[in-house]
Design a protein around this nucleic acid. Structure first.
Lengths: 223, 223
DNA sequence: CTTCGATGACAAGAATTTTCATAATGCACT
DNA sequence: AGTGCATTATGAAAATTCTTGTCATCGAAG
């Protein structure tokens, strides 16, 4: 698998590139938008991983230009937690998925694998559903039964993760890693707290509960 | 001019209704979404002023339903400063303009007059431009030369106001009133500070400066 | 050279997230 | 079924982070 990483921050860039190399991929790393655009146009990559914020030409512009030139390489955007508009823009510009920084490497790895599997199937994971609950990643908007639900950034990220793995149980550890990027087990119950708040917004006002507790393991959203 | 105000908060509701009456308009005030929908469908209004957050049926749903029923009455949404998604949603649902709370009454009055003048011309003031600077009110996104610019809520409001009055000088007092809803002149230099921060993001990284100082009066954005 | 505006640093205030303490619930075992 | 232990739920307080406003100082314009 040939991957181009476009990321100006050296630390993150190397972290990503090294990790992917260890998984056996061929990885190029570029730090400047303009150079990257040239590189992406002249070499054939399987996947592009692009930081949303770049000096010079920013990530969104790079992808827009590429798409304009009929380059269909799947793109995974890296954005920051608060940046709502970023995601909207990224996906609008022709991104296929995005990942919120900071992220656990396993998460990145999973997204890369998913993108590789469906080389050009943009637009299908962009609205996540479970029952009458809808999460529109484009607009960063959640509704249930047509009713708008306001979520804080972390709540959104947690719900998103559960929805992406709908039907499968997620342990606290898995959630801590994916949503909080904490890979040891600190004495914390953040997960419980956030699940509780999520339920108050997503489940309590409605008939059926979507977020189930699996005693002894973790949580799951029903198919 | 016959106006329906849909606002659950009594204080704001009365403030708006009273003010508009003093300007000679006929104003009805409703506090519940469902009642308001019925009222709007059975009576012919020139303008609807709708709070985004309503108990029961929220503002966006009211307007969506109305629009579904081919009711083309212009709608002005009232939203809160932080609520990004609100505005996007509001305009998407068929709103014609929006106003951020808290607002100065003069501002409301101006918007109402503008809506009255162009009864059905939605979608034209929704992207504000000046040179290569674009402000998309729908997506709450600012770009210059294609480059995305992140603005904080107050910065966005300030720039929006200047753009809406492009070419005209805005005094500090006018800005304080419109953007901060402060109608006396306190010993403050918030305007200067925010102009400075805005310039750092909007002008400094680019060739030409758009935000001009008019010494002795205030600020202006060039046509 | 005097006044007005620009700006960086700091402080206040809000919003968000995490921790902590306590209550509630489920499950195993009598 | 009842009791006790362990797990999960939740409200409130504390900590953190982000945003906004103030102040003091610097620079530019007339």
């Amino acid at each position: 698998m040939k991957i181009l990483v476009i990321e100006d921050d050296r630390t993150t860039g190397n972290y990503v590139a090294e990790g992917l190399r260890e998984e056996g991929h061929t990885v190029d790393l570029m730090t400047d938008g303009k150079d990257a655009l040239l590189q992406a146009s002249t070499t054939d990559y399987d996947i592009l991983i692009v930081d949303r914020m770049l000096p010079g030409l920013d990530g969104v512009s790079v992808v827009k230009t590429m798409r304009g030139a009929k380059n269909q390489t799947p793109v995974l955007f890296l954005t920051s937690l608060g940046g709502v508009d970023d995601r909207i823009e990224g996906l609008n510009a022709g991104g296929d998925d995005y990942l919120v920084k900071p992220f656990a490497f396993g998460e990145l790895s999973a997204r890369v694998a998913a993108l590789a599997r469906r080389p050009r199937a943009t637009q299908d994971e962009i609205v996540l559903r479970a029952g009458d609950l809808e999460m529109d990643l484009m607009r960063r908007k959640v509704t249930r039964g047509g009713q708008h639900i306001d979520l804080l950034p972390r709540e959104f990220a947690l719900l998103e993760h559960l929805l992406r793995r709908k039907g499968r149980v997620q342990t606290r550890t898995m959630l801590l890693e994916a949503v909080w990027d904490i890979s040891f087990d600190p004495q914390t119950n953040v997960v419980e707290t956030h699940i509780s708040r999520l339920r108050a917004k997503v489940d309590r006002p409605f008939e059926t509960e979507l977020i189930k507790t699996v005693r002894g393991s973790g949580y799951r959203i029903e198919e």
